[in-house]
Design a protein around this nucleic acid. Sequence first.
DNA 1: CTGTTAGCGCATTCAC
DNA 2: GTGAATGCGCTAACAG
Lengths: 355, 355
Amino acid sequence: MAKQVKIKDIAQMAGVSVGTVDRVLHNRGNVSEKSLKAIEQVLSEVGYKYNIHTSAISLRKEYKIAIAIPTAIQGEYWGAIQDGIMHAINEYSDVKLDCRFFFYNQFDIYSCRSSFASIIDQRPEAVIIGPTFKSETQRLCAELDANRIPYVFVDAVIEGTSPVASYSTDQFTCGRLLGRLLRISAPKDAEFAIMSSQRIGNERSNNSLERRKGFIGYFRDNGMEKNVKETSFSVFDPAESEKKVMRFLKENPGIKGMAVMNSRGYILAEILKANNVQDISLVSFDLTLNNIKGIEDGNISAILCQRPELQGFHALKSLIKSLLYNQEAETVHHIMPIDIIVKENLPYYREFFEM
Amino acid sequence: MAKQVKIKDIAQMAGVSVGTVDRVLHNRGNVSEKSLKAIEQVLSEVGYKYNIHTSAISLRKEYKIAIAIPTAIQGEYWGAIQDGIMHAINEYSDVKLDCRFFFYNQFDIYSCRSSFASIIDQRPEAVIIGPTFKSETQRLCAELDANRIPYVFVDAVIEGTSPVASYSTDQFTCGRLLGRLLRISAPKDAEFAIMSSQRIGNERSNNSLERRKGFIGYFRDNGMEKNVKETSFSVFDPAESEKKVMRFLKENPGIKGMAVMNSRGYILAEILKANNVQDISLVSFDLTLNNIKGIEDGNISAILCQRPELQGFHALKSLIKSLLYNQEAETVHHIMPIDIIVKENLPYYREFFEM
DNA sequence: CTGTTAGCGCATTCAC
DNA sequence: GTGAATGCGCTAACAG
């Protein structure tokens, strides 16, 4: 229980006033070489620790924060990210924030483009980005970099950018994990299907592709590459999808597991259920309301979840720290844990908000 | 982005001074009926939200907190709980705390008794309890209740007590989940073993018993009660354990999965590995260093984890709130999520500290 | 360049 | 019973 050393203490030890210490801590210049040295000396000896909250109350400034993510629907993936952000706003309510959401349609590059453009117009002091379109994001980030506006990524990372932090999942490993979950619960010679949703614009396409690679890689590593089949279904045309999937299963009777590389597992759950297919394990992503129902009803065996609330929470938290401490820090990439959710452990994931 | 309403605002609206509002908020009396009414009226209208941190800095008081848990070893279960507590101390460093750990030997009731006795002597203002011995805990809690000292439970809940909050896991469901994990990855006629560690004093005995019940219940529900076998092993005598386990496996050649109802899975992993047993899945509890190694080496198939850091973190957090707000609130029992950890998702659980 | 000072939201003491 | 005043750790404006 070492006592926290305060700015006043440091000032005293360094033989200067609190004002000068404050200037050093926020490196906003106008400090003599001599004072600087003295203060840095003391700082390195005693290990000063900032107090965000007292700092925040004394700070009269209100920060404008822009949040650029795909349209968030309650009970779905981006809705959970939004929940996490709201939670952080609440937890750091002493930091005065003016948060604005700039939702865009993740399947419409034009919507993304115009959304990003209006962000620049708003001149925010910090930005949270849920990136979908690569070059649009890069363009936005270049602009932000030029204006020294800090930003963080949630869900995924875009190369060629320099965020304060990022919160994402190792999608490749997700794919491998999916492979493992299906394989261990099936006979040795079983076949497995990758179900991709055919959709113009490609839903979180990069993520799905990585997952697919991991999935195939897993079976390749186990000498079972030939056991992996692949087909697609439509999100919008259930009847057509049903026909297609059932035809696929008839042609591939060895299929014992299906992996849906996005959050649309529930659609296939409905199809399998309607056709009384019992011996196929279904795995998918994200704890959406539909998928929750699928698990509860026993039509989905497992869901992988990437802690979207936590991503949102920490995204805002790290931005706040960046704004208040104002220091040039290295980018920190955080890889979220991958939760495996099945019928038994489902209830407690829903209930407990994890911060 | 509704503006936070402050005490000053409330005072103004109610036509009184901040002092009076404060008296009401902390219900420490000396307020006229009329003022009280007025303030409560305003409060119910605007929904005032406390700010712990500003509250904490203005509060000169230092709180004594006693933490009574089994001896915490880094990298093991109680060590992780301690980590979470330390994390909370750090996160709420503006609240002045004098935290003292009162470790006790969870296999020695006398050590527990003397530890609990010294807590009472210390006259702490709040207590975190990791309960092992039922009546010892009940006695401590009765004493705390009598002195109106708030306390919270981690890991488990003891009946006949009235904590501020508790953070524990549904052990019965853990057992069921273990059953499921083993069953789905084995042939239909496979047999499964409950491995209990025979140890005087019974390691977290209640938890193990609940898990066992859940495990057996799961197989009963699936009409496979007869497929469940049971044996025990010693933590202290590896050679003897090895003999015993291998004999058991010879006598029960149908065994395809083993469930260790505590954190000692790694011991069996070593035995299986040493004897080149490959076709038996091993599942156990808690992300201890030994178990992590077992997963990495492929000798343990899965570990169930009950977020010990999070338990510790929230335990202290809720105590802090209880101390600062000083309101008689209902007990809140929190059931932690049960994480399933396998080789693929292991790395990211270790890395990401989840608050 | 530097020290002083007022003020942030809140708790508490102390006159009235 | 009540309100004014002081201080908590910190920031920033201001006067030197």
